[in-house]
Design a protein around this nucleic acid. Structure first.
Length: 499
RNA sequence: UCCCCGAUAGCUCAAUUGGUAGAGCGAGCGGCUGUUAACCGCUAGGUCGUAGGUUCGAGUCCUACUCGGGGAGCCA
């Protein structure tokens, strides 16, 4: 019976056929262990000499990694096997042999793997991330669909600027310059006046000159927009939304999270309510004694870990010098390499810490929060933190001026926990026609281009707002992946597009 | 755009103070009936990123360039 590896639990002691690829294999004389993957999981297949023909036994023994094959055998439950089940092989068909597959079970460099992205997607780690990303996206859609939102597909070729002119990708549209969407928000606002609650979900393009672990030039963003909502309503929506995504991933992908080394206990704590701070409160924290102590504590922690790792390396080197078996030597060498990599990471943190501490201490009300400031706030809390009411000068023109304090706008950023930083930016939108027109002019935008957007403030304008969540950042945060380029199948970075 | 680091076998990395290239993985062959990045033995595999320079002699030192990594600014 033809089945998938994820269904093996329903076929114990039964005869099944699985089609997939050879993930890895080990041979031991008259016994072989073939690890087969089929897209739903991994399964160890046992081939004993005599249980299949001699010719097939020899063929399997020399079969290269990632060869395509179909295997037939009896399902057994066995704790020694990956996934808890194994297949005692009785027959196999080699669909297409693979020779010299370039990606090996040992370490590879980032550049090499991205050049082989089309193959690297088959790796266990990329597979786990891809599955979790799928569930994150499904959870996003389910949350909004179940909450009465209507999906609106906003255009990718756009005429208006949402976030800032420097970050636009311009395209030649039959001789007219247009640009790729940075956001669907302005279009979404018009739809909200028809449907009440709407969201868009699609790729977003930003030509930011940012070469960091948190930036892609093409990323996926979901943006809800709601009519008749205030800032408190938006915060509540956002915390319920983010919590639902995290909890869904926890229930459906425990084993993937474990494989990836994600912090499952920390994820369990991601439930409403999140922390709420105003920008002004954040400024006070940044310039406070408490922040100085916090940064000093961080630095001491980094130094202590570094010393510990250095001692560990010394001990391991001594062990090797004392004489150990060859295979043990390799294991120790791998541990040393890992410790050295961590030390390199710590050294960067140790180097940046005083700079970040100084930036925080010298922070003055009115500046936008920098990445390091966000990280500090994020590290101080084990739940995500909302930061609201930023100075209006540093924020986008469409954000609503706080009528109680005209220096600030009714916006918020959501800083994810564990130092990850921003995953959501949102705001209540300016709903007064004249104030908005004034801001359009001050930005230097052409009011004619924004005519339709201003129109929304003439015909039944209401308080409304929304936010945008970056999918890759969310996946990176949940999985503990260091770089968001691993959280999309084919990443586009500032100065490098591989395949 | 700026600052730091790097480029040696298909891959990941070593090579004392400048003295003529090494290991593991992968590949090939052989051994092993419970392996978990299996293990053990043998074999093949290199214009040391490119171009100059210093030197009796350069993988190692200097200059330029190319490519890559990390960080800063900005952001989802």
């Amino acid at each position: 019976m033809k089945t998938y590896i994820s269904q093996l639990k329903d076929h114990i002691d039964g005869q099944v056929t699985v089609s997939g690829w050879l993930y890895n294999s080990r041979a031991s004389g008259k016994l072989q262990f073939l690890i087969v993957r089929d897209g739903t999981g991994l399964c160890q297949c046992i081939v004993e000499k005599g249980s299949v023909g001699d010719e097939l036994f020899a063929q399997l023994k020399h079969l290269g990694r990632e060869s395509a094959l179909t295997v037939t055998g009896t399902v057994r439950s066995d704790d020694r096997s990956v996934g808890g089940f194994e297949l005692a092989l009785t027959d196999a068909e080699i669909v297409c042999p693979a020779v010299d597959y370039p990606i090996t079970p040992k370490d590879h460099g980032v550049d090499f793997l991205l050049k082989h992205r089309h193959l690297h997607l088959r790796s266990q780690r990329q597979w786990c991330i891809g599955r979790i990303r799928h569930t994150v996206i499904d959870a996003i859609r389910r949350f909004f669909n179940d909450s009465g939102f209507t999906l609106i597909d906003t255009p990718i070729f756009t005429t208006i600027v949402g976030e800032g002119e420097q970050t636009l990708f311009e395209v030649d549209y039959f001789g007219t310059p247009l640009h790729l969407a940075q956001t669907g928000q302005l279009y979404l606002e018009s739809a909200a006046m028809s449907f009440g609650k709407v969201y868009c979900f699609g790729p977003t393009f930003r030509a930011e000159k940012s070469k960091t672990r948190r930036h892609l030039t093409e990323f996926w963003m979901v943006e809800p927009e709601v009519a008749y909502i205030d800032l408190d309503g938006l915060l509540e929506l956002a915390e319920n939304f983010v919590s639902s995504i995290v909890q869904r991933v926890l229930t459906e992908h425990k084993s993937e999270l474990e494989t990836l080394g994600a912090d499952i206990e920390a994820l369990k704590k991601i439930t409403p309510p999140f922390n709420r701070l105003t920008y002004s409160q954040v400024v006070e924290i940044l310039i406070s004694e408490k922040c100085v102590d916090f940064m000093a504590g961080q630095l001491a922690g980094f130094n202590a870990e570094k010393t510990e790792l250095e001692d560990q390396i010394k001990a391991l080197e001594k062990e090797v010098a004392g004489g150990v078996k060859k295979w043990k030597q390799e294991k120790i060498a791998a541990e040393i390499a890992q410790a050295k990599a961590r030390i390199a990471e710590l050294e960067v943190k140790i180097e940046n810490n005083p700079k970040h501490a100084r930036l925080a201490a010298e922070f003055r009300w009115g500046k936008d929060l920098g990445g390091s400031d966000e990280t500090i706030i994020s590290l101080m809390h084990d739940k995500p933190t909302f930061v609201t009411h930023y100075p209006r000068e540093v924020k986008a023109f469409y954000m609503k001026t706080d009528r109680a304090n005209e220096k600030v706008v009714e916006n918020f950023d959501l800083l994810a926990s564990a130092g990850f930083g921003e995953i959501i930016g949102g705001s209540v939108r300016e709903d007064d026609h004249d104030i908005l027109l004034d801001k359009v002019n001050k930005e230097g935008y052409n009011p004619e281009t924004y005519q339709w957007y201003l129109d929304l403030r003439k015909y039944g304008s209401v308080p409304h707002g929304g936010f945008g969540l970056g999918v890759e950042r969310t996946v990176a945060w949940i999985t503990g992946e260091k770089h968001i380029r691993q959280c999309i199948a084919f990443p586009r970075m500032m100065d490098k597009v591989y395949i």
